[in-house]
Structures are given as C-alpha cells and as structure tokens.
Design a protein around this nucleic acid. Sequence first.
DNA 1: AAATGAACCAACCGCATCGAT
DNA 2: GATCGATGCGGTTGGTTCATT
Length: 344
Amino acid sequence: MGRSPCCEKEAGLKKGPWTPEEDQKLLAFIDQHGHGCWRSLPAKAGLRRCGKSCRLRWTNYLRPDIKRGKFTVQEEQTIIQLHALLGNRWSAIATHLPKRTDNEIKNYWNTHLKKRLAKMGIDPVTHKPRADAPAGAAASSGGAARYRAAAHLSHTAQWESARLEAEARLAREAKLRALASPPPGLATAAAAASGLESPTSTLSFSESAQLFAAGEGHDDAHGAAHAAAVLTPRSYGEAAAAFAEHHRFVGDDDGAAPGLFLAGVLLDCSVAAGAEAEQRFAAASTAAEAGGGEQQQQQEEEDKGYWSSILNMVNSSMSSSSSSLTSDAVTDPAMLYLPAAGEF
DNA sequence: AAATGAACCAACCGCATCGAT
DNA sequence: GATCGATGCGGTTGGTTCATT
C-alpha cells in the first residue's frame, strides 16, 4: 500500500483555527456543489487549506445537522454502553448518537467519562472493576481474582454472542427495510442529493439500502445467509452454529423490535473487527473446553445480565425517538460489569 | 487583579483501508 | 497481485477558557 503524499506539506497552505470567512467560503461552496472530491475542493472554493482540513472542519463543525452543547445523561449512558461494546471505535459510536461527531464523543469520553469511571474504580478500557479498586467497589466483594480470571472468557463470549444475535436480526431487518424502502437507486440518489448521510457512519444509508434491497423477496433464512455471506468470513458461520448452542439467552424467538438497533451496532463489529472476533472465538472455545462446567455456567449467567442490561438500554433508546433511556435503562454504571446480584 | 493550573475542544498527524488502475 | 491516490479513523497536541489561589 503506497502512502499518499501528505497534502499538508504543500507550500502556502494555512493551518490552525478557521476564520469565519473561511467557514463561509466552505459552507457556500458545499451548499452549492456538495463536497465531492475533498482534495480538489479547497482550490475550487478559494481556500488555502488542504482537503483534509476542509473535510474535518465540515465534519466536525460546519455540518448543519450537528448538535452542540452539553451531553445529556441519556447520551452519556449510550456512550458508556457502546464503548463497552465497541471500544474506541468513535465513528461507530457516533453513528448511534445522531448529531454528535466522533471527535466530540471522543473528546467527551477522554475529558469526562473516562475519569468518572476511573473514579468509580472501573477500568475505562475493559469496563470491569479494576484490581486496585477501592474498598466498596464491585471488585472487592470477595471474587476479584476469580472475576479477573473469568474476564477474558466472559468478554469473548459476550462479544461473540451478541454478534450472532446481530446477524440473525440483520436478516429480519433486511426484509423489513426492503419492504419499506424505495428502490435502491432512488434511495441512494435521494440520500446523496440531500447530503444527509453521516460522514462518520461506517454503514451509510445508501449502502444499507443497497445491501438490504439485495435481500428483497427472500425469507429470513435466505436473508440471514445473505447477510452472513456479505458481512462475515465463512468461518463465522461455523462459529455461529457452535455459539448458538452455547449461548441462547436473549430469547426473542420471533424477532420483533428488540435487538434491531443492537444489530446495527454490531454490524460494524462484524465487518470491521472480523479477524479479531475470529481469534477471540477460538480463544473462547479453547478456554471453554478447558474450564470447569460450574464456572462456565456461572459465566453464562453473568453474560445474561451483562447483555440484558445493554440490550435494555440500547433497545429503549431505539423504541422512543426521544431516547427515553431512564426507565428501563441501566442507570447505575456498575451494571456495565456487574454479574448477577450476589454472584461474588 | 494577577498568576497558575486544570479543563476543554478544535485541529493536526499519520496510519489504515478502499477503490481504481 | 501490485501500486497509487483519496478518504476515513483514532491518537495526540496546542491554544483558549475557566477555576482556584
């Protein structure tokens, strides 16, 4: 892979904060022509900036659909939960926080949420209790060492299980969307023309439309097969079968709304983190074989609680457009990592 | 009011990835 | 399959603002 020449190295290009005049030029140009090719945009728009800088300014600041200001409690909870699920994949997280940019979320995480979790004795990276957590924190209830020992397997199992759930639901979503969407060409053109696709989205509306339209007219089984074929390596299918046997706790058999949103979240994981997941699954399988049955059972219970909390949160945010997470959602950040009450 | 440190956030940097050739 | 150009992404930096002494 050849690396692109760094456009910033070009002579005479301005760096640093944008002036209102520059903003105005960029806005006016994009309003009139769309951004098109970022590299050629600055010259066309009369800006002495590199295309990268223009794109960033537009994406993080000038876009009309950006919400600025304080994060709500609901948004905070969503970020924390999604971070537990996705890690530092800010663009994927931003996809599920309408009107917030990945940069803003990242900044907010680094300046607020990370510190807050750390204060509570939670490792902001793993979302588990820290080994050196102060007395009174969840980890101190007698099972910290054991918990740590199980943490890796637990995390792997959670990740993989949720991915399977996502794939199954994706197939159903395909059917629903295919019925509800306009023809793919029209949808794509409309979305492109309106300029409403989120630049931070890892799966844009038009891509989704095309993907889902491809499954039109198929039943769920075909849809699932199609989704799996498109989104996952073949080995995932084998992994899916094994894990479906191992982890069945969501219990949503006929595939109604719950989980749809999470499917979208996890879709990103499936595509982008495929290789990693494969490794994790292999590790999980090995560990599961080696581990005792009782401990494994206990772990499954923890998984249930863990994912139920996330599913509750995510689904409740989906079911009401105003993101009324407070009712069913996890309000205690400890729920992010806590096993079932009294486990340890 | 001035000095200092902490907090915040826009922007930069460089690597990863994708599509075209 | 290799290479190249363009864009996306996440980590980091540095300037500005706010709070405290």
